[in-house]
Amino acid sequence: MTMPVDDSTTQFVIYDSGSVAKWTYDGETPPELPEPGRIVTEAEYTTARDEIRAAIEQTRAEEEAAAEAMRLQAYQALIGAGIPDGPARQLSGYTGEAPEA
């Protein structure tokens, strides 16, 4: 039994917009790029992709920290207005430690 030969080619791209793409095609002629960019090595693609992923995670962490700070601020304002701890947490969404007075 013979195994079929895989004649496909994988191409890696970094677009001018900063996004990356990877695709596999059959035949000798690669598809045209759908937007301006350049063909790169797999290593360049992987580096760019990992940088994009790291930037996304950094942004998510910053957004979560800002949201948590806003929840804490709302919680503290509610406590300052005389709202008990339980309702203040429910209204603000704050789940952290109760700050020391």
Results as ranks from 00 to 15, higher is better:
Glu97Val: 05
Leu72Asn: 01
Glu62Leu: 07
Pro30His: 11
Trp23Cys: 07
Val5Asp: 11
Asp16His: 10
Ala65Asn: 04
Ile39Glu: 10
Ala21His: 08
Ala66Trp: 06
Arg71Lys: 15
Pro87Tyr: 08
Gln58Pro: 01
Thr46Gln: 09
Thr29Asn: 11
Ala43Trp: 08
Gly93Gln: 03
Ala88Asn: 00
Ser19Asn: 07
Ala55Asn: 04
Asp6Lys: 03
Gly86Leu: 14
Leu91Gly: 03
Glu68Gly: 02
Glu62Tyr: 05
Thr95Arg: 14
Glu63Tyr: 08
Arg38Leu: 12
Pro84Phe: 13
Tyr45Leu: 01
Gly93Ser: 05
Thr46Trp: 05
Ala81Met: 08
Ala69Trp: 10
Leu33Val: 00
Ala81Trp: 10
Ala77Ser: 13
Ala88Met: 03
Gly82Asn: 04
Thr41Tyr: 03
Arg89Tyr: 09
Val40Asp: 00
Gly93Thr: 03
Glu68Pro: 00
Ala81His: 07
Glu51Ser: 10
Ile52Leu: 13
Ala67Pro: 02
Ile83Tyr: 14
Thr29Ile: 15
Val13Gln: 05
Ile39Asp: 07
Ala98His: 15
Arg60Lys: 14
Glu42Asp: 06
Thr9Val: 14
Glu35Val: 06
Ala65Thr: 01
Gln90Thr: 11
Gly27His: 12
Glu62Thr: 02
Asp85Tyr: 09
Phe12Ala: 01
